[in-house]
Simulated scan of single mutants.
Amino acid sequence: MPTTLPPRLRGVALAALFALSLAGCDDAADQQPQPPTPQVRVETLQPQALAISTELSGRILAPRTAEVRARVAGVVLKRVYREGSDVKQGDVLFLIDPAPFKADYDSARAVL
Rank of each mutant, 00 (worst) to 15 (best):
R64M: 08
R59E: 14
F101H: 11
A62N: 09
E43C: 02
P47M: 08
G24P: 01
R64C: 01
L50R: 11
V87W: 05
P38S: 06
D30K: 15
I96R: 01
R71V: 06
Y105E: 09
Q48E: 09
E67Q: 13
G24W: 01
A62L: 08
D30V: 14
K102N: 12
L93F: 05
V76R: 02
L95E: 14
D91F: 00
V75F: 10
V80P: 02
R59T: 15
A99R: 15
D26E: 09
R41C: 00
R79W: 09
L56W: 03
Q34D: 12
D91N: 01
L95K: 15
Q34A: 13
T37I: 11
S53P: 00
F101T: 02
K78D: 13
P47V: 09
L93S: 05
P35D: 12
R41L: 07
T44I: 09
V76S: 07
R59I: 12
V92D: 14
L93A: 06
V68H: 08
C25L: 15
V92A: 15
Q31I: 07
P38L: 02
T37N: 11
E83V: 12
E83N: 05
I52D: 01
K88A: 10
Y105V: 04
Q31S: 13
V87P: 03
V92G: 04
T44R: 04
T65E: 06
L56Y: 06
F101P: 00
G90M: 00
D86Q: 07
G84A: 04
P47D: 02
P35S: 10
R59D: 14
D104G: 09
V72T: 11
Y81I: 11
R79M: 13
L93Y: 06
A28G: 11
V40G: 01
V80W: 05
A103Y: 04
L50E: 13
L50K: 09
R69Y: 08
S85E: 15
T44M: 07
R71K: 13
A49D: 06
E83Q: 08
T54Y: 08
E43A: 12
R82T: 15
P38M: 01
P63E: 10
K78A: 08
G58A: 14
E55P: 00
L77W: 08
A73N: 06
G24F: 05
F101I: 03
V68S: 04
P47N: 10
S53C: 03
K102G: 02
A99Y: 06
D26G: 10
V72M: 06
R82V: 15
G84K: 01
